Each structure stands twice: as structure tokens, then as C-alpha cells.
Computed example of a mutant assay.
Amino acid sequence: MSTVAELAAEIQQLSAADKHLLMQLLLTDSDESEQDAEEAYRAEIVRRVKAIRNGEAAIKALQDWQE
């Protein structure tokens, strides 16, 4: 497996067009990962709110306050 330094050296050998294509691929991959994480985060929030509303879970801070 190549190290970052080795990859950087290889990238320097690419043409400008290939560097541009590589940047587009990396940015697209990064954007998709962020979108996946945001969707998973939102789904977890929805799941937890439903559990609280259905009485399947309690808010910990509220339990501590009542003790």
C-alpha cells in the first residue's frame, strides 16, 4: 500500500487533466460520504424521537431531574 507521500509524488506526475479528474473523483466521493452520514444522523434522530414519544425510551436528563 502506498503512503501519502508516495501518492503525492505520483500525482505530481499526472497531467493537468488527470489531476482535475482525480480531484473531481475525490470531491464526489467526499460529498457522498457526508450525505450518507447526514442521512444516517437524521434517521437516528427520528428513531429516537419516536421511541420517546411512544414511551419506549425516556430522556435521561428528565429522569435525573426528578430524583
Rank of each mutant, 00 (worst) to 15 (best):
I59V: 15
K50A: 08
K19T: 01
L14N: 02
E34P: 00
Q63N: 04
R42C: 03
A9P: 01
S30R: 15
D36I: 14
A51Q: 12
A61M: 03
D31L: 12
A43K: 15
V46L: 08
A37H: 14
Q24R: 06
E34L: 13
I11F: 02
A57Y: 07
M1T: 14
R48C: 08
E32Q: 15
Q12T: 03
I11S: 01
G55W: 02
L21P: 00
L62G: 01
Q35V: 14
L27W: 05
H20L: 12
A8T: 11
T3R: 11
E44T: 13
E56T: 00
L26D: 02
E56C: 00
T3D: 07
W65G: 00
H20I: 05
K19E: 00
R48D: 05
A51L: 12
T28N: 14
V4Y: 11
A51H: 11
A9M: 13
M23R: 13
A5L: 10
V4N: 10
R42V: 03
S15W: 05
A61I: 02
S15H: 13
Q13R: 08
A58V: 10
I45D: 05
A16R: 04
S33I: 10
T3W: 08
I59E: 09
A5D: 07
E44V: 03
I45P: 01
E6G: 01
W65L: 11
A43F: 14
T28W: 09
I59C: 11
K19P: 00
E6W: 00
E32M: 09
I45G: 03
S2V: 03
T3H: 11
A58Y: 04
W65K: 10
L26K: 10
V4M: 09
A17Y: 08
A9L: 10
L62H: 07
A57M: 14
E44A: 11
A16G: 05
R53K: 14
E38K: 14
R47T: 08
S15A: 08
D18Q: 15
W65P: 00
E32T: 13
E67M: 06
R47D: 10
A16H: 04
E38C: 04
L22I: 02
R47C: 07
L22M: 11
S15E: 03
L27H: 03
L27K: 15
L25T: 12
G55S: 06
Q12D: 07
Q24M: 07
